[in-house]
Design a protein around this nucleic acid. Structure first.
Lengths: 151, 151
DNA sequence: TTGTAAATGCAACCATATTGCAGGTGCAAC
DNA sequence: GTTGCACCTGCAATATGGTTGCATTTACAA
């Protein structure tokens, strides 16, 4: 199961590429970082610490290390970090072209969180004197899956 | 300091009005609820549990009671609840005309959170099959105060 | 005034996240 | 290939924010 692609969302880059990507940020390419980065890039949505934990499976590493790896990824600009409605952090891989605006959709039924790369629209009027550095949009409702099933 | 208005944002309704408002929701008008609702309505922005706690000052009530009062306010539709970037809950009074879209601005310097009633524009394209029930916009940057001070 | 359900306060508890430190490891210099 | 050191990792302990259970008090209506 070492190199098996989960056939999820997008094919993840190979180990070598990931390692280089990490080293380019001025840090060591450790198995932990490579694995987690790989996971995030392959994931279809934002993952909680828990999601990553169970996704790691047998290659699981220490909780604290995972926290640190995730934080490092954010600091290095390789991932985004934000809180969901139940006050837990969610991490998603940062696409190449960095965006200051990010949109998430969380399904109220199944709880999954999707990153919407699509819409970056929006100039919400600020109170004057205020300067904007970042914007996050949090949408809630039902994903296609859940909307189809029930009622 | 019992009836002294903090001269903050908007004059809060008098006790009687607040009590009626609460009773109309089918609950008892207790001092705790009245006081907290009054605070939220007078506040210029979303408050954390801690903010409310220190604002209550000498009339402080039990932590747990405060949590319950806040939760009740949300359930009764008198307040909004959402998480800020450091995974703590923030509460703000719900204006009369309920909105399904809500916008907050949090200052990265002083940490204050403002509710922007203004702009409710936005139709971010959803992936198709998805249905939307609620939207929250989280803006970050500098408030007028902090933007003015440092450069 | 009195009865009762609702609200409060206290204590214990849970989950998520963070910190400190000893030991292990990537990677570059030799 | 070997070696050294700074960076990483893992373990344990701790902090923070929030929740639950239960006995007591209180709003409010009969």
């Amino acid at each position: 199961m070492d190199t098996a692609p989960p056939s999820l969302h997008q094919a993840s880059a190979d180990i070598g590429t990931l390692a280089t990507q990490i080293r380019n940020c001025g840090a060591r390419a450790t198995p932990a970082r490579i694995r987690v980065l790989q996971l995030l890039q392959a994931a279809p949505g934002a993952m909680t610490h828990h999601d990553v934990e169970s996704a790691l499976g047998e290659t699981m590493l220490d909780r604290v290390t995972l926290y640190r790896v995730l934080d490092w990824l954010v600091e290095a600009g390789l991932a985004h970090k934000n809180t969901d409605s139940s006050r837990v952090f969610r991490f998603s891989s940062a696409a190449a072209g960095e965006h200051t605006a990010h949109a998430h959709f969380s399904c109220e039924t199944c709880g999954r969180v999707f990153c919407l790369d699509a819409a970056p629209p929006k100039p919400p009027a600020l109170p004057d004197g205020f300067s904007l550095s970042r914007m996050e949009i949090d949408l809630r409702g039902r994903c296609a899956n859940c909307a189809g099933e029930s009622s």
